[in-house]
Protein backbone atom coordinates (compact mmCIF):
# COMPACT_ATOMS: atom_id res chain seq x y z
CA UNK A 1 0.00 0.00 0.00
CA UNK A 2 1.41 3.33 -1.03
CA UNK A 3 0.63 6.53 0.74
CA UNK A 4 0.98 9.99 -0.61
CA UNK A 5 3.18 12.11 1.60
CA UNK A 6 0.23 14.30 2.45
CA UNK A 7 -3.46 13.65 2.05
CA UNK A 8 -5.69 16.33 0.64
CA UNK A 9 -8.11 16.52 3.54
CA UNK A 10 -11.39 18.05 2.68
CA UNK A 11 -12.85 20.13 5.52
CA UNK A 12 -15.68 18.11 6.98
CA UNK A 13 -17.47 20.89 8.77
CA UNK A 14 -20.03 21.42 6.05
CA UNK A 15 -20.40 17.97 4.71
CA UNK A 16 -21.58 14.55 5.72
CA UNK A 17 -19.88 11.20 5.28
CA UNK A 18 -19.45 10.06 1.67
CA UNK A 19 -20.82 6.68 0.55
CA UNK A 20 -19.35 3.97 2.76
CA UNK A 21 -17.12 2.39 0.08
CA UNK A 22 -15.48 5.75 -0.61
CA UNK A 23 -15.05 6.43 3.11
CA UNK A 24 -13.51 3.00 3.75
CA UNK A 25 -11.14 3.41 0.83
CA UNK A 26 -9.90 6.83 1.90
CA UNK A 27 -6.34 7.46 3.14
CA UNK A 28 -7.77 9.58 5.93
CA UNK A 29 -9.82 6.68 7.24
CA UNK A 30 -6.82 4.37 6.94
CA UNK A 31 -4.58 6.72 8.92
CA UNK A 32 -7.24 7.17 11.60
CA UNK A 33 -7.66 3.40 11.95
CA UNK A 34 -3.91 2.86 12.31
CA UNK A 35 -3.76 5.51 15.02
CA UNK A 36 -6.84 3.98 16.70
CA UNK A 37 -5.16 0.58 16.74
CA UNK A 38 -2.17 2.03 18.58
CA UNK A 39 -4.45 3.83 21.03
CA UNK A 40 -6.40 0.68 21.87
CA UNK A 41 -3.25 -1.36 22.34
CA UNK A 42 -1.68 1.29 24.53
CA UNK A 43 -4.86 1.75 26.58
CA UNK A 44 -4.92 -1.96 27.35
CA UNK A 45 -1.24 -1.95 28.31
CA UNK A 46 -1.69 1.05 30.57
CA UNK A 47 -4.84 -0.14 32.31
CA UNK A 48 -3.57 -3.69 32.84
CA UNK A 49 -0.40 -2.16 34.26
CA UNK A 50 -2.59 -0.33 36.77
CA UNK A 51 -4.22 -3.60 37.79
CA UNK A 52 -7.43 -3.38 35.73
CA UNK A 53 -8.99 -6.50 34.21
CA UNK A 54 -10.63 -6.27 30.80
CA UNK A 55 -14.16 -7.65 30.62
CA UNK A 56 -16.48 -7.70 27.62
CA UNK A 57 -19.56 -5.52 27.91
CA UNK A 58 -23.12 -6.67 27.27
CA UNK A 59 -24.79 -5.37 24.12
CA UNK A 60 -28.45 -5.44 25.22
CA UNK A 61 -30.31 -5.48 28.52
CA UNK A 62 -33.73 -4.72 30.07
CA UNK A 63 -32.46 -1.23 30.92
CA UNK A 64 -29.47 0.86 30.04
CA UNK A 65 -27.94 4.15 31.09
CA UNK A 66 -30.82 6.64 30.97
CA UNK A 67 -28.15 9.11 29.93
CA UNK A 68 -28.74 12.74 29.44
CA UNK A 69 -29.11 15.52 26.91
CA UNK A 70 -32.14 14.24 25.12
CA UNK A 71 -30.81 11.15 23.39
CA UNK A 72 -33.17 8.25 22.76
CA UNK A 73 -32.44 4.65 23.65
CA UNK A 74 -32.74 2.07 20.92
CA UNK A 75 -35.19 -0.77 21.57
CA UNK A 76 -34.93 -4.35 20.46
CA UNK A 77 -37.57 -7.02 20.66
CA UNK A 78 -36.12 -9.73 22.89
CA UNK A 79 -38.42 -12.76 23.02
CA UNK A 80 -41.38 -10.39 23.17
CA UNK A 81 -39.80 -8.11 25.78
CA UNK A 82 -38.55 -4.63 25.08
CA UNK A 83 -34.80 -4.62 25.60
CA UNK A 84 -32.39 -1.75 25.15
CA UNK A 85 -29.15 -1.51 23.24
CA UNK A 86 -26.51 -0.28 25.66
CA UNK A 87 -26.21 3.52 25.66
CA UNK A 88 -23.43 2.98 28.17
CA UNK A 89 -22.36 0.06 30.35
CA UNK A 90 -22.48 2.01 33.62
CA UNK A 91 -24.96 -0.24 35.41
CA UNK A 92 -22.97 -3.36 34.50
CA UNK A 93 -19.67 -1.71 35.37
CA UNK A 94 -20.85 -1.20 38.95
CA UNK A 95 -22.16 -4.76 39.20
CA UNK A 96 -18.90 -6.14 37.79
CA UNK A 97 -17.04 -4.91 40.85
CA UNK A 98 -18.41 -8.06 42.48
CA UNK A 99 -15.97 -9.95 40.22
CA UNK A 100 -12.88 -7.71 40.27
CA UNK A 101 -11.98 -4.48 42.06
CA UNK A 102 -10.77 -2.83 38.86
CA UNK A 103 -12.33 -3.48 35.49
CA UNK A 104 -12.50 -1.95 32.04
CA UNK A 105 -14.37 -2.43 28.79
CA UNK A 106 -13.85 -1.30 25.25
CA UNK A 107 -17.59 -0.90 24.73
CA UNK A 108 -19.78 -0.12 21.75
CA UNK A 109 -22.70 2.20 22.59
CA UNK A 110 -25.74 3.37 20.67
CA UNK A 111 -27.61 6.62 21.36
CA UNK A 112 -30.17 8.13 19.03
CA UNK A 113 -28.89 11.63 19.67
CA UNK A 114 -31.09 14.63 18.87
CA UNK A 115 -30.77 15.60 15.22
CA UNK A 116 -29.33 18.99 16.19
CA UNK A 117 -26.13 17.21 17.31
CA UNK A 118 -25.32 16.22 13.73
CA UNK A 119 -23.79 19.68 13.44
CA UNK A 120 -21.56 19.51 16.49
CA UNK A 121 -18.93 17.42 14.65
CA UNK A 122 -18.61 15.53 17.92
CA UNK A 123 -21.58 13.17 17.95
CA UNK A 124 -22.14 9.77 16.47
CA UNK A 125 -25.23 7.68 17.12
CA UNK A 126 -22.96 4.61 17.35
CA UNK A 127 -19.64 5.02 19.13
CA UNK A 128 -17.20 3.38 21.53
CA UNK A 129 -15.94 4.10 25.00
CA UNK A 130 -13.02 2.93 27.05
CA UNK A 131 -15.06 2.28 30.19
CA UNK A 132 -13.21 2.13 33.49
CA UNK A 133 -14.46 1.43 37.03
CA UNK A 134 -12.56 0.95 40.28
CA UNK A 135 -13.90 -0.25 43.63
CA UNK A 136 -13.13 1.90 46.68
CA UNK A 137 -11.83 4.57 44.31
CA UNK A 138 -12.37 8.27 44.78
CA UNK A 139 -12.88 10.94 42.19
CA UNK A 140 -9.21 11.88 42.57
CA UNK A 141 -8.19 8.28 41.82
CA UNK A 142 -10.41 8.24 38.79
CA UNK A 143 -9.04 11.56 37.50
CA UNK A 144 -5.50 10.32 38.00
CA UNK A 145 -6.19 7.20 35.89
CA UNK A 146 -7.94 9.24 33.18
CA UNK A 147 -5.03 11.67 32.97
CA UNK A 148 -2.48 8.85 33.01
CA UNK A 149 -4.36 6.94 30.34
CA UNK A 150 -4.65 9.92 28.02
CA UNK A 151 -1.01 10.89 28.42
CA UNK A 152 0.15 7.31 27.90
CA UNK A 153 -1.84 6.64 24.72
CA UNK A 154 -0.90 9.98 23.16
CA UNK A 155 2.79 9.43 23.84
CA UNK A 156 2.60 5.88 22.52
CA UNK A 157 0.73 6.76 19.33
CA UNK A 158 3.10 9.62 18.48
CA UNK A 159 6.07 7.29 18.85
CA UNK A 160 4.54 4.25 17.18
CA UNK A 161 3.03 5.76 14.02
CA UNK A 162 4.54 9.24 13.51
CA UNK A 163 4.08 8.86 9.74
CA UNK A 164 0.31 8.68 10.14
CA UNK A 165 0.27 11.99 12.02
CA UNK A 166 2.45 13.47 9.32
CA UNK A 167 0.14 12.14 6.65
CA UNK A 168 -2.82 13.83 8.29
CA UNK A 169 -0.86 17.03 8.74
CA UNK A 170 -1.22 16.85 12.54
CA UNK A 171 1.73 18.61 14.18
CA UNK A 172 3.06 16.60 17.17
CA UNK A 173 3.74 19.95 18.85
CA UNK A 174 -0.01 20.15 19.41
CA UNK A 175 0.53 17.62 22.21
CA UNK A 176 3.61 19.22 23.75
CA UNK A 177 1.64 20.85 26.55
CA UNK A 178 -0.39 17.72 27.17
CA UNK A 179 2.78 15.69 27.65
CA UNK A 180 4.59 18.28 29.72
CA UNK A 181 2.67 18.47 32.94
CA UNK A 182 -0.49 17.96 34.98
CA UNK A 183 -3.87 18.98 33.61
CA UNK A 184 -5.67 21.95 35.05
CA UNK A 185 -8.84 21.63 37.12
CA UNK A 186 -11.81 23.98 36.93
CA UNK A 187 -15.04 23.59 38.90
CA UNK A 188 -18.31 23.76 36.98
CA UNK A 189 -19.04 27.02 38.76
CA UNK A 190 -15.70 28.47 37.61
CA UNK A 191 -16.35 27.23 34.09
CA UNK A 192 -19.72 28.99 34.09
CA UNK A 193 -18.08 32.19 35.35
CA UNK A 194 -15.42 31.95 32.66
CA UNK A 195 -18.10 31.54 29.98
CA UNK A 196 -20.01 34.51 31.34
CA UNK A 197 -16.82 36.57 31.20
CA UNK A 198 -16.49 35.53 27.55
CA UNK A 199 -20.01 36.84 27.03
CA UNK A 200 -21.47 33.37 26.54
CA UNK A 201 -24.80 32.43 28.17
CA UNK A 202 -24.68 29.31 30.34
CA UNK A 203 -27.13 28.12 32.98
CA UNK A 204 -25.41 27.49 36.34
CA UNK A 205 -27.82 24.58 36.92
CA UNK A 206 -27.17 22.67 33.71
CA UNK A 207 -24.66 20.75 31.69
CA UNK A 208 -22.28 23.02 29.77
CA UNK A 209 -23.80 23.34 26.31
CA UNK A 210 -21.87 22.16 23.23
CA UNK A 211 -21.06 25.65 22.06
CA UNK A 212 -19.90 26.73 25.51
CA UNK A 213 -17.76 23.66 25.88
CA UNK A 214 -16.09 24.30 22.55
CA UNK A 215 -15.49 27.94 23.45
CA UNK A 216 -13.96 26.98 26.79
CA UNK A 217 -11.81 24.34 25.12
CA UNK A 218 -10.49 26.91 22.62
CA UNK A 219 -9.11 29.00 25.47
CA UNK A 220 -6.85 26.13 26.60
CA UNK A 221 -3.65 24.64 25.27
CA UNK A 222 -3.73 21.42 27.25
CA UNK A 223 -6.49 19.10 28.46
CA UNK A 224 -8.35 20.22 31.58
CA UNK A 225 -10.86 18.84 34.05
CA UNK A 226 -14.22 20.36 34.90
CA UNK A 227 -15.54 19.05 38.22
CA UNK A 228 -18.62 19.33 40.45
CA UNK A 229 -21.43 19.44 37.93
CA UNK A 230 -24.80 20.37 39.39
CA UNK A 231 -27.36 17.73 40.16
CA UNK A 232 -29.89 17.69 37.35
CA UNK A 233 -27.19 17.62 34.71
CA UNK A 234 -26.12 13.98 35.08
CA UNK A 235 -27.55 10.52 35.70
CA UNK A 236 -28.64 9.11 39.04
CA UNK A 237 -25.42 7.11 39.49
CA UNK A 238 -23.10 10.14 39.90
CA UNK A 239 -22.67 10.58 43.65
CA UNK A 240 -23.91 13.77 45.28
CA UNK A 241 -21.49 15.60 47.53
CA UNK A 242 -22.27 15.25 51.24
CA UNK A 243 -20.51 18.51 52.07
CA UNK A 244 -21.98 20.47 49.19
CA UNK A 245 -25.51 19.19 48.47
CA UNK A 246 -26.62 19.83 44.91
CA UNK A 247 -23.11 19.22 43.56
CA UNK A 248 -21.99 15.91 42.11
CA UNK A 249 -18.64 14.28 42.80
CA UNK A 250 -17.98 14.00 39.09
CA UNK A 251 -15.76 15.36 36.35
CA UNK A 252 -15.30 15.77 32.65
CA UNK A 253 -11.93 15.83 30.93
CA UNK A 254 -11.89 18.23 27.99
CA UNK A 255 -9.38 18.38 25.18
CA UNK A 256 -8.00 21.79 24.17
CA UNK A 257 -8.26 23.54 20.77
CA UNK A 258 -12.05 23.31 20.69
CA UNK A 259 -12.19 19.50 20.65
CA UNK A 260 -14.07 19.46 23.95
CA UNK A 261 -15.22 16.57 26.12
CA UNK A 262 -13.22 13.34 25.96
CA UNK A 263 -14.12 11.78 29.29
CA UNK A 264 -16.99 11.79 31.77
CA UNK A 265 -16.46 10.24 35.16
CA UNK A 266 -17.59 10.26 38.75
CA UNK A 267 -17.72 8.71 42.13
CA UNK A 268 -20.81 6.50 42.12
CA UNK A 269 -23.84 6.28 44.32
CA UNK A 270 -23.86 2.83 45.85
CA UNK A 271 -26.41 3.31 48.63
CA UNK A 272 -29.69 1.65 47.66
CA UNK A 273 -32.09 4.23 49.16
CA UNK A 274 -30.12 7.12 47.70
CA UNK A 275 -30.15 5.51 44.26
CA UNK A 276 -33.94 5.05 44.36
CA UNK A 277 -34.41 8.68 45.40
CA UNK A 278 -31.99 9.90 42.74
CA UNK A 279 -33.83 7.85 40.14
CA UNK A 280 -36.99 9.76 40.98
CA UNK A 281 -35.10 13.05 40.79
CA UNK A 282 -34.07 12.16 37.25
CA UNK A 283 -37.63 11.19 36.32
CA UNK A 284 -36.93 7.47 36.16
CA UNK A 285 -39.30 4.73 37.20
CA UNK A 286 -37.28 2.56 39.64
CA UNK A 287 -39.36 -0.51 38.75
CA UNK A 288 -37.59 -0.68 35.39
CA UNK A 289 -34.23 -1.12 37.10
CA UNK A 290 -35.13 -4.13 39.22
CA UNK A 291 -32.06 -6.26 38.49
CA UNK A 292 -29.76 -3.33 39.16
CA UNK A 293 -31.54 -2.30 42.35
CA UNK A 294 -31.47 -5.89 43.59
CA UNK A 295 -27.70 -5.92 43.12
CA UNK A 296 -27.35 -2.56 44.85
CA UNK A 297 -29.53 -3.74 47.72
CA UNK A 298 -27.24 -6.72 48.22
CA UNK A 299 -24.37 -4.27 48.17
CA UNK A 300 -21.57 -3.40 45.79
CA UNK A 301 -18.42 -1.56 46.82
CA UNK A 302 -18.29 2.20 46.55
CA UNK A 303 -16.50 3.08 43.38
CA UNK A 304 -15.41 5.68 40.89
CA UNK A 305 -14.83 5.44 37.18
CA UNK A 306 -15.15 7.06 33.81
CA UNK A 307 -15.81 6.53 30.14
CA UNK A 308 -13.39 7.87 27.55
CA UNK A 309 -14.97 8.44 24.16
CA UNK A 310 -12.80 6.56 21.72
CA UNK A 311 -13.82 8.38 18.54
CA UNK A 312 -13.49 11.76 20.23
CA UNK A 313 -10.03 10.82 21.44
CA UNK A 314 -9.01 9.74 17.93
CA UNK A 315 -10.46 12.91 16.45
CA UNK A 316 -8.38 14.96 18.89
CA UNK A 317 -5.28 12.95 18.04
CA UNK A 318 -5.77 13.13 14.28
CA UNK A 319 -6.92 16.75 14.31
CA UNK A 320 -9.72 15.88 11.89
CA UNK A 321 -12.71 18.16 11.54
CA UNK A 322 -15.48 15.75 12.40
CA UNK A 323 -15.80 12.71 14.56
CA UNK A 324 -17.37 10.66 11.78
CA UNK A 325 -14.03 10.76 9.95
CA UNK A 326 -12.47 8.52 12.60
CA UNK A 327 -15.17 5.86 12.64
CA UNK A 328 -15.05 3.20 9.93
CA UNK A 329 -18.84 2.92 9.67
CA UNK A 330 -20.03 6.31 10.83
CA UNK A 331 -23.62 6.94 11.83
CA UNK A 332 -24.29 10.65 12.08
CA UNK A 333 -27.39 11.40 14.22
CA UNK A 334 -30.58 11.42 12.19
CA UNK A 335 -29.01 10.07 8.99
CA UNK A 336 -29.60 6.60 7.67
CA UNK A 337 -26.19 5.03 7.05
CA UNK A 338 -25.00 1.44 6.65
Amino acid sequence: MEHATTVAIEPAADRRPPPLAEHLDSDTTRAAMLIQQEVLGAARTYLRGEGFVEMLPPVIGPVTDPGARGSKQVDVDYYGHKYKVMSSGILYKQASLLTFDKIFYVAPNVRAEPVETCNTQRHLAEFHQIDVEMAHGTRADSMRIAEGLLTYVVRHALTAVPEQFELLGRDPLAFAWLLSGPFGVLSHREAVDELHLLGHPQSPDAEIAWTGEELLSRQKDRPFFVTDYPKGSRGFYDRESTTEPGRLRNFDLLAPEGYGELVSGSERESDYATIVTRMRETGENPAKYRWYLDVMRQGVPRSAGFGMGLERLIRFLTGLDAVWQVNAYPKVPGEMAP
Partner: peptide, 17 residues
Protein backbone atom coordinates in the same frame (compact mmCIF):
# COMPACT_ATOMS: atom_id res chain seq x y z
CA UNK B 1 -39.73 19.25 46.68
CA UNK B 2 -36.23 18.04 45.81
CA UNK B 3 -37.53 15.44 43.35
CA UNK B 4 -39.69 18.03 41.59
CA UNK B 5 -36.87 20.59 41.51
CA UNK B 6 -34.37 18.12 40.12
CA UNK B 7 -36.76 16.64 37.56
CA UNK B 8 -37.35 20.11 36.16
CA UNK B 9 -33.65 20.87 36.06
CA UNK B 10 -33.02 17.54 34.40
CA UNK B 11 -35.63 18.36 31.75
CA UNK B 12 -34.05 21.75 31.13
CA UNK B 13 -30.65 20.13 30.93
CA UNK B 14 -31.67 17.36 28.56
CA UNK B 15 -34.06 19.30 26.37
CA UNK B 16 -32.62 22.82 26.28
CA UNK B 17 -34.63 23.78 23.19
Amino acid sequence: DEILRQQIRFMRNNFPR
